[in-house]
């Protein structure tokens, strides 16, 4: 039994979370991977007409960061946000339906991939504007503090956003007002094609935390336990009323920025090297090594995820399109002056 063999030198996640929670985390990581692969496949088959920003390779960052959150806690997400939705317990069918532009989707087909949100689960939404979610996250944290809800907000953003004015203004205000928000930077090395080395004056984005008098830490974003350990500490600090933190998860997107990307700014070797560091393989190995799952059970989780995504795509494909006459619905709240 796991509880009779507590390993004091085991990684943080193993020491902190129950086997059920860890198994669920791996399940979500598989769901993200399969969602993204399903999205790519649907695009190839002409079922999705917009572009997409896939987070394959970044699954540990999304799931690991949300481990200590409840549905009352908020997140704001980015244009590369499918993983965050899954980590925050989104319904895969409604996600795919949104991707397909269907009335049954999270945004009734009005938002698409870049705007999936689920306020009932605390997911305030992805964002098509780089840095757009940063001040909104600070606002959510302000509400939590004023209304005394005890909720914490995790603000996901990419390395590209760290050079937006909104990033600096947001970190400053969060620190000045000591708000319960955790800034999680998913540094996947490139803002579209421009590397952090070419765009960012500091070596590690977490160094920028010092300018706003908050803790900043850089971790291996493909190491589930390392992510969880860093973000959990920041969430606990926020919950205790001690203010914001910045956590930088170093990770990598295996796919291009979007469908228009010809991958001219990075080498095949670099991509292969990062694919060797697959966060799902690492997490699976971790759970097998600590006897939380057998290899067969890991394979079972993957199969299960494949089936969930297959069902989600079927649900989306069979769903109705929005009605043309409803194109201007929901611009304003019904019943209010408009």
């Amino acid at each position: 039994m796991a509880d009779t063999l507590v390993e004091t030198n085991a990684p943080y996640a193993i020491r902190t979370y129950s086997p059920e929670q860890l198994k669920d985390a791996l399940r979500k990581m598989f769901l993200i991977r399969k969602f993204e692969e399903g999205a790519e496949d649907s695009y190839m088959r002409g079922l999705i007409h917009g572009t997409m920003h896939l987070s394959i390779g970044q699954e540990a960052s999304a799931v690991g960061s949300c481990m200590s959150l409840t549905d009352a806690d908020k997140i704001t997400s980015t244009h590369r946000g499918h993983g965050h939705c899954v980590a925050k317990n989104a319904d895969l069918g409604k996600m795919f339906a949104e991707f397909f532009g269907k009335e049954t989707g999270y945004c009734k087909g009005r938002g698409g991939s870049m705007h999936i949100a689920d306020p009932s689960k605390g997911n305030l939404g992805a964002n098509g504007i780089v840095g757009g979610g940063l001040p909104i996250a600070v606002g959510a944290a302000l509400s939590a503090k004023r209304l005394g809800t005890g909720a914490v907000t995790i603000c996901f953003f990419g390395d590209g956003a760290n050079n937006e004015g909104a990033f600096h203004e947001s970190l400053n205000m969060a620190a000045v007002w000591k708000l319960p928000v955790v800034f999680v930077c998913e540094n996947n090395k490139y803002g579209m094609s421009t590397s952090t080395a070419r765009s960012t004056a500091v070596k590690n984005i977490a160094e920028r935390a010092a300018a706003y008098s908050m803790p900043g830490v850089t971790v291996d974003g493909n190491d589930f336990s390392a992510v969880t350990e860093a973000v959990d500490a920041a969430v606990a600090r926020a919950r205790a009323g001690e203010g914001p933190s910045l956590v930088e998860n170093l990770t990598y997107r295996w796919r291009g920025h979007s469908k228009s990307d010809r991958n001219r700014y990075r080498t095949k070797e670099e991509i292969s090297e990062w694919m060797e560091r697959d966060p799902i393989v690492a997490m699976s190995n971790l759970l097998v090594a600590h006897k939380i799952l057998s290899e067969a059970e890991v394979a079972g989780l993957e199969e299960q995820a494949t089936q969930v995504i297959k069902d989600a795509i079927e649900f989306a494909a069979a769903s109705p399109d929005p009605r043309i006459e409803d194109a201007t619905r929901d611009v304003y709240t019904e019943g209010a002056a408009a």
Partner: peptide, 22 residues
């Protein structure tokens, strides 16, 4: 607020989305 119009406006948007009336 600090002299941060973009951030300040965004904080107001986030606060309005989550229960306050700024």
């Amino acid at each position: 607020t600090p002299i941060s119009e973009l951030g300040g406006a965004g904080v107001a948007v986030g606060a309005a989305l989550t229960g306050l009336k700024p």
